[in-house]
Design a protein around this nucleic acid. Sequence first.
DNA 1: GATGAATGAGGGTTCATTCAT
DNA 2: TATGAATGAACCCTCATTCAT
Lengths: 228, 228, 228, 228
Amino acid sequence: MQPVPRGPRGQGWMSKVSARPGETVAGPEGQDSEKRRQILDGAREVFRAKGYEGAAMDAIAKAAGVSKGTLYVYFTNKDELFEELITDEKRELAAALDAFEPTEGSFRDNLRAFAISFNELLTGENHMSSIRMVVGAVEKFPAVGAMFFRAGAERGTTRLTEAFARAIEDGRLKPCDPAVAAQHFIALCTSEVMKKSLFGCGLRPTPEGVERIVDNGLDVFMAYYGRT
Amino acid sequence: MQPVPRGPRGQGWMSKVSARPGETVAGPEGQDSEKRRQILDGAREVFRAKGYEGAAMDAIAKAAGVSKGTLYVYFTNKDELFEELITDEKRELAAALDAFEPTEGSFRDNLRAFAISFNELLTGENHMSSIRMVVGAVEKFPAVGAMFFRAGAERGTTRLTEAFARAIEDGRLKPCDPAVAAQHFIALCTSEVMKKSLFGCGLRPTPEGVERIVDNGLDVFMAYYGRT
Amino acid sequence: MQPVPRGPRGQGWMSKVSARPGETVAGPEGQDSEKRRQILDGAREVFRAKGYEGAAMDAIAKAAGVSKGTLYVYFTNKDELFEELITDEKRELAAALDAFEPTEGSFRDNLRAFAISFNELLTGENHMSSIRMVVGAVEKFPAVGAMFFRAGAERGTTRLTEAFARAIEDGRLKPCDPAVAAQHFIALCTSEVMKKSLFGCGLRPTPEGVERIVDNGLDVFMAYYGRT
Amino acid sequence: MQPVPRGPRGQGWMSKVSARPGETVAGPEGQDSEKRRQILDGAREVFRAKGYEGAAMDAIAKAAGVSKGTLYVYFTNKDELFEELITDEKRELAAALDAFEPTEGSFRDNLRAFAISFNELLTGENHMSSIRMVVGAVEKFPAVGAMFFRAGAERGTTRLTEAFARAIEDGRLKPCDPAVAAQHFIALCTSEVMKKSLFGCGLRPTPEGVERIVDNGLDVFMAYYGRT
DNA sequence: GATGAATGAGGGTTCATTCAT
DNA sequence: TATGAATGAACCCTCATTCAT
């Protein structure tokens, strides 16, 4: 997709994003100490497995390999730990999304590669656990849900929208609302896999299964949006 | 869509389902006493609002208007109460899905009406709370997630698949895999709204918003699947 | 003091007070169950020994012979338990004060008996513990301090003031402000003992010691307030 | 009161006391470094406000402007810090008491001035906080209570006793036990104000209020102890 | 059958104390 | 010497569950 390296930026359709805008956080020595990361890792593990309410600070401390007291040196309380963790996850998700690079090949080939990568990202068991953890906590942490959505689904759509806008200019897509096209593309290529994963229903699809789904979706997508 | 009652089943494209296949339950006097229902209603309210872990049996008893002890007369423990509740929810969801009836009008009009109804069902705040509750508990109750998925998304797809199969026979859709078509249809018309609701992101879409989304989706769908 | 049983009330200089005005309290079956009392007794013991902050709910539960959970069935939290306890203590203190009855004998004899009883009441180790417990908590529970003061010192002074007012009418005391006289009387006869007890300084005075202190105080008091 | 510097001691009725008899302490560089004082000041502030149990070492460190670790360089543990603080307070109290100087004027005028000053000292909010702090901790630190009592009430009484003994010699007071007279004097002039302050009951008395109390007390005192 | 009092394990959090730097 | 990160015991409180009535 968009192999035309127009402009001096010399990059395809997505640019790296500089994560870590630097938040003020509790805890000693700056904001990103070894211990802090250690705790976040333990917390991620337990929160993913048990959800917000089900996760015990005791279990988190154990998983992180620190004492319970140390948890409270770095994070004010359970809520803050959870929110920081989500922020962290969100950052990783955004970074992963931004890492996609266009490959050599046709427009459809590029879309295909993106869709497959996106599916893999979304359905990775780690990521699904995070999503379930967030969804399960939306009622208590509404802001967290919105934040995560924006970092994930929305960000992916936005990146795609930009790419589609350029593709329309280039005549690779027929004139249309690129945002709607992006949503349709993602819906056709990912929603089936997403839904099943969300409910923990069935195993992860095989690579071949994903490819088939993506190809089917692309057929429908290109039938409408492709340049006749 | 397909108002022709062809064949011996004599109904349109969806038949009512007889809910309540009758499970064995712990409660007294059969399986569905007044009290039992009362408890399930209270439990639904609290589980939806707080999730599985966040819901206290105390709060459920209060919401149900019974004593805490009575809870344990009808349900072995919290887990069972939760599972029974999901079973119950699932039943209602299935019943609602089965209640869709074809209207007079074109094939596209029928699809449109179905999509709009489906969207409304999915994004009703009650239903979204249930979904979030289930998703949040998938890690602890894997079976519950699968059950819910089958009763909801999958059941909807299945109904649609049947209808599409007939539509292909009728020549209203071009020859294709009706199951894939059903997935694409649902993806195009519902996934955007679903995703946002799932993350509690933004208000519910307006009726006009839903119509626009459905119309956009139908355009894409019909461009590929429609009879030339 | 005031042996003249004037009026139909037929009682001496103090009337019984009806304690227990009936407060609304948490806990099952009314407000004065067996368990409730049991808990208050345990709490009294521990709070007296350790003060508010030093008392652990665990220790209170143990002292009361109930489980920790039961504490919270009867009292909302530690604060409320403490306050209810003080209210309770206050009630007992007031009742004890009101129980003093005039004896046969001279005015001075009656005063003497009252002072001795009062000293005993004040310096009983139980009561001193309560006072220390209250004083130590004044900074956190200002209302509790005031309440206790009114139930104790102030109530004693008030009763005495009434009696002195009648004594002035009767000509048993020279004309003066009876409230000031009451304060002076109590100061002369009790403050020395009080102060020492408050600081846990030295053993309790012997009965003879108390008598000597009271007699000394009475000499001074009568020299000024006595009828010529 | 007795401005006549009769006798070899050559002072009025009270002599300055040399505070700081020099105890062995844990801290570095002697016993009274800057840091040590800084810590004691922070500790005083927090202990007064929260009592022994309620005071957190963390809060003390913050109030003192040192790190928590430093606390343990100068004091073995919380108990010792508390005890040292009381010792310190006691010293200041004694010094304040010893600072009273007889003024020109009649015996009664001198007594009056002393009583007023004494009241002010006792009821200063700082001092009352200290007293409450000590009283609240008597059960855990019996020695501390006694120490404080001796430094305060008893020391005041002793000084007065000495003065009264001389006054009796001088014929300014009638022959009596000067110690009992001292107790009576203090009781009459200070106990009312003391009691109320102890229980945090009501505002501090106005200067006029104190004067009235003192005058009333003096009337009674002089009626008995004064030279006809 | 229905109740609600009672339980005790376990929840999140605080805090006096230690120790490597 | 002075620090502050780290600890774990103990704090107050909640909650799923039981049981006598």
